[in-house]
Simulated scan of single mutants.
Amino acid sequence: MDNDLENIDNILKQLNQADSAFNHYETKIMKLKNLLEVTKIINSTLEEDKLAQIILYSCQGQFLVQNATLILLEDTDKGLFEDHLSIGLEKDKFEVKITKDSPLLKAFYSNPDDESKNLGKKAYFYSEIKKFFQNQGLDALETDVFMPDVLAPLWGKNSLYGFLILGKKLDSTSFEREDLSYIFQFTELAAISIENAKLFEMAIMDRMTRLYNHQYFKNRLYEEMERSKRYQRTVSLMFFDIDHFKSFNDTYGHQQGDIVLKATSGLIKTTVRKTDIPARYGGEEFAVILPETSVEEAFKVGEKIRKRIEAFEYPGQEKPLHVNISCGIAEFKATEDSILTPTDFVEMSDQALYFSKKNGRNQVTIYTDEIPEKLKNMKEENPGH
């Protein structure tokens, strides 16, 4: 009888162990399913800003955290990392910059496969990272401001693309060691998407100015004109040119000219909307596509950009330098039978720009049907120019 009871007891223990193992594997399967769903979501876009939002909100849903931050590689040449987006904190951007000389970067970059001396390719409790640096006599890190509980590196195939930072859990419970493995699996998937977005960005961006390149501009102009036809909406096109830029380069040199191009691009980019498409058309010429924007609204934007550039103090010399720009604007009012081509649209904007330059520079001109005739008359009046 005693043997029978002992056998039953052993069977019950085995059943409990099996049930526990089943629940454990069921949880793992559920997490893998969740990761698959997350993968589909984060691979749905190659636009970095949208991708950052998707990653952080997916984190909040997967790990039930109060806050999350994404730090990304923003300048490959300089090895500069910046906080790209935060959710659940007082600000969505803290303007934190992490340079290649940062102890945090050095700890991850310096042979990450040797965890005895450096930080490895895995997720960490933030307390572990703090202890790692405190042992080196360093108490404060750039990432302290993000109220971190967990930090995980975003490793692509061959490079570090940033960090994912998670705050405390919503239910105030602590992360377990097993959670770190799941978090790092998530960051591996996120890093692949970020790497793809960076590669896509390299293909469509002008490296110097960080505006869209000429080919991307042409593609998007065609798309926006077709969309305009389909939905009977207006799209405007602006062209800018830095006045007397050749003379400027001859006087101050091409390095100073590059400083002006970069700063001017930044002023244009920060003035237009996120839905607009600013591009470097070529040399010192820039273009901006403004979807669903009338020529009158575009004129206000053009004037705002012109005034900002006129007032801006360009660095690089003993005293600040100043430049002006000329601008031409055209409007595409769509109908289903519109015969205006992208080439025609560009030509209209370019003629308005040319009129601005011929008419004294540092001004914005809206294209009208009279512009070609006015330019012809100007040429006849000044045949040597």
Rank of each mutant, 00 (worst) to 15 (best):
G88C: 05
Y109P: 05
N67R: 11
K97D: 04
E90W: 01
K106F: 08
T76P: 07
F108Y: 14
E82G: 02
Q66V: 15
K91W: 05
F63D: 05
H84D: 06
P103Q: 08
K93S: 13
L105M: 07
L85H: 04
I55N: 06
L64K: 10
F81S: 03
L80Q: 11
E90Y: 01
Q60G: 11
D92Y: 03
E90P: 00
P103M: 07
C59Y: 06
Y109E: 13
K97C: 05
C59I: 08
I98L: 00
E82Y: 06
P103C: 11
Y109W: 11
Q53H: 10
Q60C: 14
Q53V: 09
N67L: 15
E82D: 08
I54D: 05
Q62N: 07
Q66P: 12
L73N: 05
E74P: 00
L64Y: 12
A68N: 11
A107H: 08
L72V: 10
V65C: 14
L85E: 04
V65T: 15
Y109H: 14
D77A: 11
G79N: 09
L56P: 01
L89S: 07
D92H: 03
E82K: 11
H84I: 04
I54A: 08
V65I: 15
S58Q: 07
F81C: 02
L105Q: 03
T99G: 03
L85C: 08
P103V: 07
A68L: 07
F63Q: 04
T99D: 02
S86P: 13
V96S: 01
L89Y: 01
E82L: 10
H84P: 03
K100M: 00
D83Q: 06
L72I: 11
D77P: 08
L73P: 03
I55E: 05
Q66D: 15
L73F: 03
E95C: 02
S86N: 09
L73Q: 07
T69V: 14
K106Y: 08
Q53R: 15
